[in-house]
Amino acid sequence: MSIQHFRVALIPFFAAFCLPVFAHPETLVKVKDAEDQLGARVGYIELDLNSGKILESFRPEERFPMMSTFKVLLCGAVLSRVDAGQEQLGRRIHYSQNDLVEYSPVTEKHLTDGMTVRELCSAAITMSDNTAANLLLTTIGGPKELTAFLHNMGDHVTRLDRWEPELNEAIPNDERDTTMPAAMATTLRKLLTGELLTLASRQQLIDWMEADKVAGPLLRSALPAGWFIADKSGAGERGSRGIIAALGPDGKPSRIVVIYTTGSQATMDERNRQIAEIGASLIKHW
């Protein structure tokens, strides 16, 4: 067993022997301040990774656009098919120029040779490549099948209805392509620590998230040296922004954090800054 596999296998073990965790309302004060600064709703939840206990939450059962955070769930569904012998990570998928959609920095470079399922998941999570996500959605049967996968996990809230990039439209009061912070946090925890996926697939999923290259201005910008984070960000229309993450000190994750916002007129930089400040408060009061 590799060191990384050992780390993920012992996530519940280490967490069980940690000192009790206590909620700190100071972080919620910052979440509410972010709402004021952005002029928009902000949803927040913080779960203990081992027990699933909610440590703090704000608007945990209000719907927010998922945006690209759905790509972690998508690759979880792909990995479940791999575990069941219905898919192979090494299978190569070929596609054409007509398949390319807006923001496809990886797939646009491989029109000639195609990409493997493993490479597509890596591109979808680490670079948020939209064509990679659409190609992977095709392998599982489309958005409705991802929703069905989530329902089978016990998540009857999260739903995907459309493809990239239309799913980022974020129309107010439109339930399409949305989740709730509580539902997303619980589902992410199941994917990373539950028995739904094999140990190898859980490790692969967290490795992809740990290698995320496009979430630097968010929670990662607030992390002290030595902290662990595996995350996936999302951005959408109407001032929408979000991030889902597993993080913790001492090089291992111990909490799940989900943050979503929508309806702001603020710039992307300002949305990023507010999420980073929430992260800084979380870490300060850990």
Rank of each mutant, 00 (worst) to 15 (best):
W163T: 12
D36E: 13
T187Q: 01
T193Q: 05
L89K: 07
R81V: 06
E164M: 13
M127R: 13
A222I: 15
V258G: 06
L167H: 01
L197G: 11
D83V: 02
E102S: 00
A185Q: 14
R273A: 10
F228P: 13
M184V: 06
H24C: 12
K252S: 08
R81H: 08
S281A: 07
S57G: 02
A276H: 14
G154K: 02
G279C: 15
L223N: 05
G251D: 03
R238A: 01
D161V: 02
Q37S: 09
A133H: 05
R92I: 15
C75S: 01
I278S: 13
H151M: 06
T69G: 09
I206D: 07
S51F: 01
V82R: 02
L135W: 05
V78R: 02
I54N: 06
G39R: 06
I93Q: 02
V117S: 06
V29G: 07
I45M: 13
T147C: 07
D155K: 09
S57E: 03
G142Y: 00
R220K: 14
K53H: 11
I278D: 09
P249W: 11
A170Q: 00
V42N: 13
T139S: 12
Q274M: 12
G76F: 07
L205G: 05
E35K: 11
E277A: 11
L247R: 12
G114K: 05
R271I: 13
K30T: 11
K190C: 15
S104M: 07
H94P: 12
R255S: 10
M209Y: 05
T193L: 06
H94C: 01
A124E: 02
R220N: 13
I140Q: 03
V72F: 06
E108W: 05
R176P: 08
A211R: 05
S57V: 02
V117C: 01
G76D: 09
G52S: 13
Q204C: 03
G154W: 08
D33M: 10
N134A: 04
A246C: 08
G194T: 11
S57D: 00
D33G: 12
P181M: 01
K53I: 12
T178I: 13
N130C: 09
W286R: 06
R41N: 11
T107N: 02
L219I: 09
A77K: 07
L192H: 14
A183T: 02
I171A: 01
Q37N: 06
V31F: 13
D174L: 06
K109T: 07
T187M: 00
I54R: 07
G236D: 00
V29E: 09
N173R: 10
D161T: 01
D129P: 02
I256V: 10
L28I: 11
D83G: 03
M184L: 03
Q86L: 13
R63W: 11
M66R: 02
P25C: 00
L192S: 13
E102D: 13
G90R: 02
S96L: 04
D207I: 06
M180G: 14
V257M: 14
V257Q: 13
K30S: 15
Q203L: 03
P105I: 09
A133G: 07
T27H: 10
I125W: 11
L28R: 09
V214L: 15
N168T: 09
K109V: 06
S51E: 04
A123F: 03
S128H: 13
N98A: 10
T267G: 11
E119A: 02
S104G: 03
L196N: 12
S80W: 15
E195I: 00
T131V: 07
R162H: 00
A123W: 08
V101K: 14
M180K: 05
M180H: 11
D212W: 03
I244Q: 07
I93D: 00
P181H: 02
Y44T: 07
T198A: 01
L146S: 01
